[in-house]
Design a protein around this nucleic acid. Structure first.
Length: 480
DNA sequence: ATGTGC
């Protein structure tokens, strides 16, 4: 019998694979889905979550978000917490793109200010913001300046003129993880990262000019400084080749030391090390360094895009009204304190394609947002919409303080290309303004290739994990 | 995701 058939329905949006369903499964797998999204759930994604539930020191449950799909070893949309003393850390459960994440910038502009000239504006963004596989930026980092980026994260970017000091307060972990140790990243990672800072990358990464299309909660929107018709800028990118190399390097290390630590795995892609081992600590410190690279990357991308739009419209900064709403990771592992049973416990929370969604009054939520909760930015596809939510109290018990991260693919890259070839690109993306160096990524990233992000977000809202605040509509998109 | 892959 397949695992999907063994899922037990626990509520309108809650499914459970009880512990011990697969051999050695220490905790249940809890999957959050609507009926429509249940239909799209892949057997292999359940298997991957169940595999993770066998790992050493895993706590409470593996949680799976409604935008789940199969990933490398651990599903995208998966959340795993392991005991900091007895548990493991797993590079595959963070993902190859360490600190892939999203940033949302508010402006004083109205959609009517940009909509009529959006094509010309996006051509200007294409000229100024490097995008695509292997694209390089205008920053060259010597090994010593690279070290500074890896330690300071977004702060490095602000010190070098990209953005404002006050931006840092509105970034997860203030844009800089304290456990970063640049010496734990390889020479190869340094090389790859030396010319890619301030570049978008490829795949689902993008820079987008948007408008606030609908407000769901007026009071919260007001506190966040958002209103209908307002122009926003969204950035979706990560740590580029640097993070990719860190993941590659430490997956090899993990595989090598499995026998030393007596770790047996249901899937070699789940290769991991005890968190407190030398190798586990090395990975953690290198991963934090890669996360800081990504924070710096998005800081530069967001500011460069804003500056391009501002100059195109001939506005002063004051008229433009640049303001960072928030920036957060959705591929990361962090040490956090969570309630497990009756006591608080320090755990390593792995979020892979999953966003931290801390509730109001959590000390990690910046003062300006303390009463509304941590902003949760959910990018959709380039055709439909993206969402802004805020973390709610139930997230702590239901998912280690975690929400979804996006729409999630429903069509393979190959199938998407086939559809475009059959129907023609003009027809498939009719009415959208998308710019890119080539057509390849656009073909793979058509809206039809994605699940409906509204349905994903609705599940998170209904569960009380995060609350819907606003829907953002793409005006123009830059893809890799 | 990725100096993209059988």
């Amino acid at each position: 019998m397949g695992l999907k058939e063994q899922l037990v329905r626990k509520g309108d949006y809650v499914w459970e694979l009880p512990k011990n369903t697969v051999n050695g499964q220490k905790v249940p797998v809890i999957i959050y889905l609507s009926d429509a999204l249940f239909e799209l759930l892949e057997e292999d994604a359940i298997k991957q979550a169940a595999n993770a539930a066998t790992l050493r020191g895993v706590q409470k449950a593996i949680y799976v978000m409604p935008d789940v799909h199969v990933g490398y070893g651990f599903p995208v949309g998966g959340v795993m917490a392991t005991d900091t003393e007895t548990g493991i850390i797993s590079p595959g459960s963070v993902g190859y793109d360490i600190n892939c994440g999203v940033r949302l910038i508010a402006t004083n502009l109205q959609s009517k200010d940009v909509a009529p000239k959006i094509k010309e504006l996006m051509q200007e963004v294409l000229k100024n913001v490097p995008a695509g596989v292997g694209s390089t930026g205008d920053i060259r980092l010597s090994p010593s300046s690279m070290e500074e980026v890896l330690v300071k994260g977004a702060k490095w970017a602000v010190e070098h003129g990209y953005g404002l000091e006050e931006d840092l307060e509105h970034i997860e972990s203030f844009g800089s993880l304290p456990n970063a140790d640049p010496s734990k990243a390889s020479h190869e990672a340094y090389e790859r990262g030396s010319d890619e800072l301030g570049t978008v990358g490829s795949g689902n990464h993008f820079v987008e000019v948007q408008m606030v299309e609908e407000i769901y909660d007026e009071e919260i929107a007001q506190k966040l400084g958002l209103h209908e018709g307002q122009v926003t800028i969204m950035v979706h990118s990560g740590s580029r080749g640097f993070g990719h190399q860190v993941c590659t390097d430490y997956l090899k290390v993990a595989v090598r030391v499995l026998p030393k630590y007596g770790i047996e795995l249901p899937d070699p892609q789940l290769a991991c090390m005890p968190f407190l081992s030398n190798e586990g600590q090395d990975y953690f410190k290198a991963m934090c360094a890669a996360a800081n690279y990504a924070f710096a990357n998005r800081q530069i991308l967001g500011f460069k895009t804003a500056n391009t739009v501002r100059r195109f419209l001939g506005l002063s900064w004051e008229e433009f009204g640049y303001r960072l709403i928030y920036d957060h990771a959705h591929n990361i592992a962090k040490i956090e304190e969570h309630r497990v049973g009756s006591k608080l416990k320090k755990v390593v929370v792995h979020r892979k394609g999953a966003t931290r969604a801390f509730p109001p009054y959590n000390p990690e939520v910046p003062p300006a947002y303390r009463e509304v909760g941590q902003p949760v930015i959910i990018p959709g596809d380039m055709g439909r919409a993206s969402y802004l939510l805020v973390g709610q109290p139930d997230s702590m018990e239901k998912s280690f303080g975690t929400a979804c991260h996006g729409a999630g693919r429903v069509m393979s890259r190959r199938a998407a290309k086939r559809l475009v070839k059959e129907q023609g690109l003009e027809r498939v993306i009719a009415g959208l303004t998308v710019v890119a160096r080539g057509k390849g990524t656009i073909m793979e990233e058509i809206p039809q290739a994605y699940k409906d992000v509204s349905e994903v977000v609705r599940v998170i809202h209904e569960l009380g994990i995060a609350k819907m605040v606003a829907r953002l509509k793409p005006l123009g998109t830059l893809k890799g």
